[in-house]
Design a protein around this nucleic acid. Structure first.
Lengths: 194, 194, 194, 194
DNA sequence: GATGAATGAGACTTCATTCAT
DNA sequence: AATGAATGAAGTCTCATTCAT
């Protein structure tokens, strides 16, 4: 893809992100996205095979960037605990600073067929894997329980953070999301026992 | 609502549950639901104002039943820890035994506008509240940390369980969901620390 | 199909016949046919799976009627020669009196994919077969040449009449089509030799 | 038109012939023709006003060549009968050896509006006229009936041959077309009488 | 002259909802 | 109350044609 082609591709992706976030996938007509991108309706189809492809591509791009950011930051950490805190911090901070993306991933991303969800699952997989590796590292460092079920725990951790973000969005973002990092990480590390 | 009316109302709700679970909300034409319920298309509109109302009513009914079940079981418990285990057990068991409902709540329920999600939020709220009360009870019993952020923790707990269920569904239900109760509750109670 | 359903089905067929004849298949929007039939656009799709189905059904209906008429009239004939004259007479007369159908069969019918043409071929086949049987009968009656290649001759006869009708249409119907029966049949029977 | 211009013009005509023959006129996008010709989409419009013009020009070119061939061959004949045989022979042989052109003239050529068909009629006219002159010559030579309706007969002859070619194409070209010359000419000369 | 990215009008088809019976 | 035929708005996608480079 030439640089110029890439430009228009990105233009449409960014426009779609805004429109999806505001109206939801199903209520985002292709014509609305085209208008937001400042291109003709037909132009969309020069870059995407069909409407669904816009959503899939958008997620792959954006989640790919996120995962890269996770990786970059974790590499700098010196302990599994610190890495976990970093993951949670990035998770909350990035979505707090990128509300449009948050809406799409938390709300609209779910508005899709099981097939599409599987596609999405593929894009999220590297992140889940990253959490898993972090857990294994912690077990090896003996800071996490030796009997930890990593396959289960990675889901529990991802799901817990995911719900906090969704709840924050649905509430209308009336409080700080990043302020929840401390409590969240404590819950992961300490559990709720006295 | 007369008893007879209630009957047909339930008939449609049950049909919708099956159809939504199989095809998803957006791909479930009203005519398909009508056929599954054995009534005419127009009859649907004698009981529901619009298609969205079927989904909302369905969730209110079904989640209402679930919450009642939670309440009934928790009342019998003697400690907050036992209550938490019970909640997780019912959560996993009920959805494992009611796959159609699981599909609707985990997959299709998300396929909706922000407005609808708020509606859904209302139906889920009593369950979240129930978890909150359980946490307060635990703090009072001094089995849970005194500094627990109950508002946050209830989300973390719900979200964690929610993700486990969704993941189980998307995986194709290849393993036992109820077998995850032990690990899940341990995570809640102990955290992941060594 | 109930009588009432059949009525609307026929209504659409007749409307389509007129619209196809005037504008040609590709320029006949479904909405135009619906308007001509006095029904809503969507109603068309209660009776036909897609636009192409209207054309196919129309041809099956109309050509079916024609073939029935051919059969009925030929049964009354006493010789193969008389039967051939009858075929030509009906062919020209029916299309002369049914200009819309003539346009569709001669002009629009050809405006179609090879696949569709094969479909159409199936509808025309019984007519070609009828001509073949007539030729065989003539050979048996010894009024037609014993060495006649019936497979080839049936095509030559059909094609010759077909071209006369098309030419008459394209000319703008400036002369009588039925007046060509005599010359046509003579050609078939006598050839052009002196 | 300069020699260079003519070259590209021909390039496009040849490409269109192949594409039309394979996909049919309506399914042959301009971009497909451009690709087959190895030129840009826009270049097409430097040589042809619109898509329809490509088809018309193509037919004028190709049918013009055919008619020239007919003329050249007929001039060498010594009798009207021989000339008729020659016409039929060329008609069948040329199309048998030029399947792409056959598809376009027999199938796609019909896939057009009445206006276009009139245009096509103009291109075919010289051929029909040629047949007419041949018939007149035969009548003058007293080898054809004196009472022959030449206007009608030229259509019958053209239509008969035309149908044989179309039928051969639709059948999938499973037999030799040129092998039908003998039977066809016999039919024209002898008719079907015993 | 040549390019090919961009345009945008236009058409088919679906399906939630209505209403006469 | 129940029916289900009919409605018609709305949306995705195609593709002939244009025009800046």
């Amino acid at each position: 893809m030439t640089s110029k082609k890439k430009e228009k591709y990105d233009l449409i992706i960014e426009a779609a992100l805004k429109v999806f976030a505001e109206h939801g996938y199903h209520r985002s007509q292709v014509s609305k996205i085209a208008k937001a991108a400042g291109v003709a309706d037909g132009t969309i189809y020069l870059y995407f095979k069909r409407k669904e492809d816009i959503l899939i591509s958008l997620l792959q791009e954006k989640l790919g960037e996120l995962v890269a950011k996770f990786h970059a930051n974790i590499e700098e950490t010196t302990s599994a605990k610190e890495a976990l805190r970093k993951v949670c911090e990035i998770h909350y901070t990035e979505l707090e600073n990128n509300v449009d993306l948050a809406f799409v991933t938390q709300i609209e991303l779910r508005q899709s067929s099981l097939e599409l969800r599987r596609e999405i699952g593929k894009a999220v997989k590297p992140y889940i894997t990253l959490i898993e590796q972090l857990l294994i590292r912690g077990v090896e460092e003996k800071v996490f329980r030796a009997d930890l079920d990593v396959k289960l725990t990675r889901l529990l951790i991802f799901g817990a953070m995911d719900e906090v973000v969704t709840s924050w969005l649905i509430s209308g973002r009336k409080y700080s999301l990043s302020a929840q990092v401390e409590g969240t990480v404590n819950f992961f590390l300490q559990g709720i026992r006295a």
